[in-house]
Write a protein that binds this DNA or RNA. Structure first.
Lengths: 145, 145
DNA sequence: GAAAGTTGGTATTTATAAATATCAACAACA
DNA sequence: TGTTGTTGATATTTATAAATACCAACTTTC
């Protein structure tokens, strides 16, 4: 039994070990990604890599699907309600242009953000993506506005 | 062909005519009610009665289920994110006690509201219930806070 | 350079949510 | 007062979302 210390956000797991740890198939992980629920780290070689934080996030999504019986499209819609504009505090002009602000049904991090403050941000590292993976947190955020 | 003028909110349709107009079964209507998605008017005789506004609301729910592929539990969770506390402008003390404010996954109108401003309100007539049946509207409300 | 793992894609299976069918007891209404 | 419709509740069907299996091409690793 060896213990290795790595940062919570360090992408250290390959897709197959992530799948094994989560007890799901590799394809399911790729499906969640395609649906825009998760943003795994990608090496130059295009290979995916997952952190402990990613695994926690995915567990939370699985819980929503399996326990709370919320469909994937339901989760996407809930994520699309996160008031990202408050979190990143973007300008009025940015909001006018932003698909995340104006769109429905898809999380902001599934869009490019041409011409906004988010344009050059890496959504994988954004608070909006990281802090509100569970629905309870989303409601807390809405309350705090 | 006769045209009858009735208020949009006047409950004039029996459950069977509502079902016929919506092209769904009577049982489905009762199921939506049991799930807390709709609050039909009830006569003293316990019989349900539906207004045109009810039919519009139900169409909107059907659209979420069939087109947007959001599960019923997903819709409930989305409704639970409506910032009702802003709409009814309830007090801090009310919020502390309120299951709608503190709970997760169920619309506020599925709770009793003992000891709050909502206690004696009829949720069927409440703005929170009436104005935000479609998800787009929910996001607009969150934006407007 | 051979083995093991990953890629994106489609085709298939399975688990179950959503809807339907059926029921006896009761209510409405002509 | 008899016909029609409603009630709640359970049992069953169906439609499909979520997950799995399989593929050939490509990477990584030792």
């Amino acid at each position: 039994m060896t213990e290795i210390k790595v940062s919570h956000s360090e992408p250290v797991f390959s897709i197959s070990s992530a799948a094994k740890l989560l007890n799901i198939s590799v394809h399911t992980l790729r499906m969640y990604e395609k649906e825009g629920l998760i943003i795994p780290f990608k090496k130059e070689s295009k290979q995916r890599s997952y952190s402990k934080a990613d695994l926690d996030r995915i567990n939370c999504i699985r819980n929503a699907i399996n326990e709370s019986k919320i469909s994937i499209n339901g989760i996407k819609t809930i994520y699309s309600l996160i008031p990202c504009w408050q979190v990143v505090n973007c300008s009025e002009e940015d909001r006018k242009k932003c698909e995340g602000y104006n769109g429905h049904g898809k999380p902001c991090w599934t869009y490019d953000h041409p011409g906004t403050v988010c344009e050059n941000k890496n959504c994988r590292e954004c608070e909006v993506y990281n802090n509100f993976s569970e629905c309870g947190k989303v409601k807390e955020l809405i309350k705090s506005i």
